[in-house]
Design a protein around this nucleic acid. Structure first.
Lengths: 344, 344
DNA sequence: TTCGCGACTGAGCAATTGATCGATCGTACC
DNA sequence: GGTACGATCGATCAATTGCTCAGTCGCGAA
């Protein structure tokens, strides 16, 4: 980086840089002082910065993990990454991550924004910390079906309702289970206008708030009764490491072709990819492989995660394979209001 | 300095500061990204800088001694101070200082500028390094009389001639010795129009280039035969530590009232004070007390000095008395072209 | 509840800064 | 010596930034 500067140059650059950055003079003043033209001063300042004579350091608190965020962003070509500080207790860890996600979500939303929402324990914590400050005319829509067991706060419909309540927006529920008994049943359900309509709205969302599921026996899909332990074991045997909206992927981010896929009532991976800002929230300790798979699948734009998982994922990623199969267009962190039809 | 920031604030400030200073986004972009107004981002950035979250460091080479310059500027309320790197050999030390002074001088000059010039070995080296690059329609005028012994390069007239030659300007000589035999003789000399005119021009200079003389037996005044060793001893006995243009001062910067003063053909201390930018050049090792006295006399605006003397003067100053008896108006390092009548 | 105070906000404008472009200058190669 | 190339320069203009000011909001006291 450091150019090979002549001593005179070095001296002039340092002097000018000090005048500008430390003494807060204007380039104009400096130009007069050193009998140079203003553009020349500008070029010198530029050179001083590029050559490393001027060092700007952001004194970030160590718990901020800005470096981890940068690495995540870069490694996985994310639009953004937010790493929340480590907590030893799983519940407070979940809350920390959810708080960050809620803040982020708040920044994404404009009147008229449609947000597709998944299920999950992490996702389910988000509404508690969602304080957008002002009324937002947004629509929160379930992006996948519900779970048979009553486990209210982790069900997408319930999360949508809570989010909508927090900001004065609307919730659009999906009246269907996440997994049905057969592909045929799924197709018949999708033919129901109530279901089809909700999924169409979800597919046209500009923001999605999703969790990343694991494949262990304690994962949400199993706990909530969507899938049995046997089914989960079969998925694991097929190489599944995690899911987004019930779409399972392997460690390389490739979709798992399995019968489950045909019984799923949820947005597909392709639907997700078309959504501008997909925000994933994850905090559990068993998650690194699932996160890595999801990231490599290229469905995630923004990852909100705890420091432990972030480090683990980066370590795993460094050890194997390509990490960004889908170079996405740089999507702005907060998109403009889109004059999109909203549902009632 | 560091305010007591709340954790949230801290996080936001750090994030925004990083986006701005590290990622080079505009405030506008950042405002969009964080859903804030642009002025708000500005205020946050401002706070981040003032609170020390953003640290800007100028990676100056150690031989630059920018810190010494700052201390000199501050301690003695100088418009500027330039410290040149230490050299072991007195002659190359002198050259280093003279080079800095020449550069500085070059920056001060505009067409029409009048420069009053003293004698001295350090001053005498300046012309060799004076390369203003372009023709300058300046007038260099002797601010004190010459010395009886032929010691060409340290005589003010000769220095003026050399400087003028370097930039294509004019030299105005003072046809008088520095010290004459009596006060009466001095007055008669000053009545000569040739002498009076030159001194008037010198008094109206906007820049002065002066040395600071010592009071040891090897100083320029003695070497050049202006004063005898006896006279010098008498001055020392009166407390004199050094001179500027033959005006001797004590360690506190007070003028020495002595018969010599009345025999001197040179600008007075008051004349010097009226000159906008008085640049003093000093390099010799015996000089710290002389420099301190001259600085305290408040006649110097810009000090060009070697690192050794700089440190010594600051040490001495720290140990005793007030250092800036005359708070000067902040004078710009390079003044504007002044439509002042020039002499031919 | 209402009022007053102070802090904060963002619109709008002025100053500063960044970037482009043709002109000029030095230099290396023919 | 002549020519062509590249570097450098400063005039100029557009973008960005700093700052002021009137308006708003929340909060505590009456």
């Amino acid at each position: 980086m450091l150019e090979d500067l002549r001593q005179d140059d070095y001296e002039l650059l340092a002097r000018i840089a000090r005048r500008y950055y430390v003494d807060d003079r204007t380039q104009e003043e400096i130009a007069r002082e050193f009998a140079l033209s203003r553009p020349k001063v500008q070029r010198l300042l530029d050179r001083a910065r590029r050559s490393g004579i001027v060092e700007i350091h952001i004194q970030a608190p160590p718990w901020l993990n800005l470096d981890l965020e940068d690495q995540l962003r870069e490694t996985f070509r994310l639009a953004d990454a937010i790493v929340s500080p480590s907590r030893s207790d799983p519940q407070s860890q979940r809350e920390a991550v959810a708080r960050s996600a809620a803040q982020y979500l708040g920044r994404c939303l404009r009147d008229g924004t449609v947000v597709a929402v998944s299920h999950g324990r992490d996702t389910g914590e988000v509404p508690r910390f969602f304080h957008p400050g002002r009324r937002l005319d947004c629509t929160f829509v379930s992006a996948m079906g519900g779970s048979p067991r009553v486990d209210a706060p982790t069900n997408p419909n319930e999360i949508c309702r809570a989010l909508a309540e927090r900001c004065g927006g609307r919730a659009a529920s999906l009246y269907a289970p996440a997994y049905v008994e057969s592909a045929e049943m799924r197709d018949r359900l999708l033919a129901q206008e109530a279901v089809a309509h909700t999924l169409r709205v979800a597919a046209q969302a500009s923001v999605a708030l999703v969790g990343i599921g694991g494949t262990d026996d304690g994962c949400t899909m199993v706990r909530s009764g969507c899938l049995s332990m046997d089914e989960m074991a079969r998925l694991r045997a097929q190489g599944a490491v995690g899911d987004v909206l019930g779409n399972y992927v392997d460690i390389e981010g490739r979709p798992i072709a399995s019968p489950h896929q045909d019984r799923l009532v949820a947005l597909s991976v392709d639907d997700l990819r078309r959504i501008e800002t997909v925000v994933a929230v994850v905090s559990e300790v068993e998650k690194p492989p699932a996160i890595l798979g999801a990231l490599r699948a290229g469905v995630i734009d923004v990852l909100v995660v705890d420091a432990g998982n972030a480090r683990a994922v980066l370590d795993m990623a460094g050890a194997s394979g390509p990490n960004h199969p889908r170079p996405r267009a740089a999507s702005p962190r907060a998109q403009e209001v889109i004059g999109r039809a909203t549902v009632r």
